[in-house]
Design a protein around this nucleic acid. Structure first.
Lengths: 152, 152
DNA sequence: TTTTCTGCAAACGATTTGCATACAC
DNA sequence: GTGTATGCAAATCGTTTGCAGAAAA
């Protein structure tokens, strides 16, 4: 089980860049800590806050997500559904970055890791001369459940 | 050099779905035929039309791009610059789908093909049970030229 | 007290839509 | 002629921004 961040990490990283610790930022991070593995949009977060009776302005949600991303606590991603989504980073530097399988029938997003990807990246770098610093890999298809229900 | 589509392909595919051949659709496709390998946004296309003295309403440009995509003549993609981009598909069914290396300094997009990707996809499918029908692979980094100018 | 933050409302940019007219078939 | 397409303007949607008041440091 990969380690995630703590509030102290948030505090420390905010201070390093002369930002301030605020209840809003703490609460937004806590939402992700409470939901490991979920890919939340700004609207999702805003809705969760609303249902928690801890309303925070939508603009502040956007600003907090962007900040937590810059601080390295959240990772930003796009699944082609028209909005940015965020998920908690792991603190484990040796962890492989995971990637996403997106079911085009039920819209489920599942994650995978695969060592072949590292080989692919190395191969691309060698052939192209690019110095690669990040990648995005998404596979679209039908998950097991949807394959079954199509057959029936 | 991969084969691309012709106006006859457009005509045929339009008829199959009871759509009509219009000058606007013909002109939009021609723009892509004239610029193989370019990744054009709706605004790009609209600008080219403007400079060609063949103005077409922006809404029609959007509708044409979406239609050409549905007909399989164009491929839609996102590079994270806030707008959708399109490029001509090849007609060669045995061609490997190519992928993109995006320079995060000069924003150049270059394309690559790599057989390892097929292996990766097969591996993922085996492990996850997903039936994969499409994928998106983007690598972000520094192109050769930008690596050089950073060193200087 | 100084600087950064928040919340609100207005602004934004890409894309979509409603509708009357024009055109392809 | 019939049904689809176009052009325009207005609407939409996610996101960003300006600004005045609030709150961290």
């Amino acid at each position: 089980m990969p380690m995630t961040f703590t509030m102290e990490d948030l505090q420390k990283r905010l201070q390093e860049r002369q930002h301030k610790m605020t209840p809003q930022r703490r609460i937004v991070l806590q939402i992700f800590l409470d939901r490991p593995g979920e890919h939340l949009s700004a609207e999702d977060v805003h809705g969760i806050l609303r249902s928690n009776h801890s309303e925070i302005g939508l603009a502040t949600v956007y600003r907090s997500l962007e900040l937590l991303n810059k601080l390295g606590l959240l990772q930003k991603m796009e699944f082609g559904d028209g909005c940015s989504r965020y998920e908690l980073n792991t603190t484990d530097p040796s962890a492989h970055q995971h990637h996403h399988l997106i079911c085009i029938r039920c819209n489920k997003v599942i994650e995978f890791e695969d060592d072949l990807l590292e080989a692919l990246e190395q191969d691309i770098a060698d052939k192209s001369g690019f110095r690669i610093v990040d990648h995005q890999v998404k596979f679209f298809g039908y998950c097991k459940e949807c394959q079954n229900s199509i057959e029936n």
